[in-house]
Amino acid sequence: MWSFFHKLGSPPWLYRISGSILRWLLPLTLLGLALGMTWGLFFTAPDFRQGNSYRIIYIHVPAAVVALAGYYVMATAGAVSLIWKMKMADVALRAAAPVGAALTFVALLTGAIWGKPTWGTWWVWDARITSMLILLFLYLGVIALYEAYDNKEAAGKACAVLSLVGTVNIPIIYKSVDWWYSLHQPASIKFTGPSSIDPSMLYPLLLLIISFYALFTCCLLMNMRVGILQREARTKWVRKLVGL
């Protein structure tokens, strides 16, 4: 266990192992995404209330789920970086931020497009949408802070502190936004959770959620490889890798 943990801190090992993971995970992810989307688009029956527009759920929900989970991945990397001073955790933190931000953006955008035929409006200041918007701001804040530092080692640590502060605050933000919404809830819009979803609709959704998690992992590893190369540009193993 501990030897594995130590290996995680070794750039050449991480670079090599991420390459061999990506070799099979990336095709599998693309296959899962393609299968899930085709299944959701063409091979499921439409919802009896929302008609065909509900098919957006197959990208909206996985993107939202993974976007939120991504923040915790980022914050965990931040904690590891601060506690064990592991440089590779900084790289992981920086690698996770843009992926999480992009997925949050996808969730917000598909939600808006879904809202138009369902509620008749692009944007509603609903608790969940507002929380997602705040999550996007949190991601963008981490990226902006990292880019503002010239010293990238300090940038990683500063982002680690910020993402940990964010982790402590996310439950508070979510609860207060929830409460705020219940206070102002307009009567015309009713939100019904997907509590009783038919299994035939559920299976493609589950496949896509897993595929989105895999996609997040792939993007994280690929971004990390770039980060590792940039950090280790002057070392012997990178020189060997380049072929000199």
């Binding site: 989307m37 688009l41 439409p46 008609g51 065909n52 909206h60 955008l109 598909t110 690929m222």
Partner: peptide
């Protein structure tokens, strides 16, 4: 898609584009 095609297809199209960019960039 019974009139919902514009919404469904644009949502899928933009999402696939963003995901593709996410993979291509690194």
């Amino acid at each position: 898609m019974d009139g919902h095609g514009v919404f469904v297809w644009s949502a899928y199209g933009i999402s696939v584009l963003v995901l593709a960019l996410l993979l291509l960039r690194p």
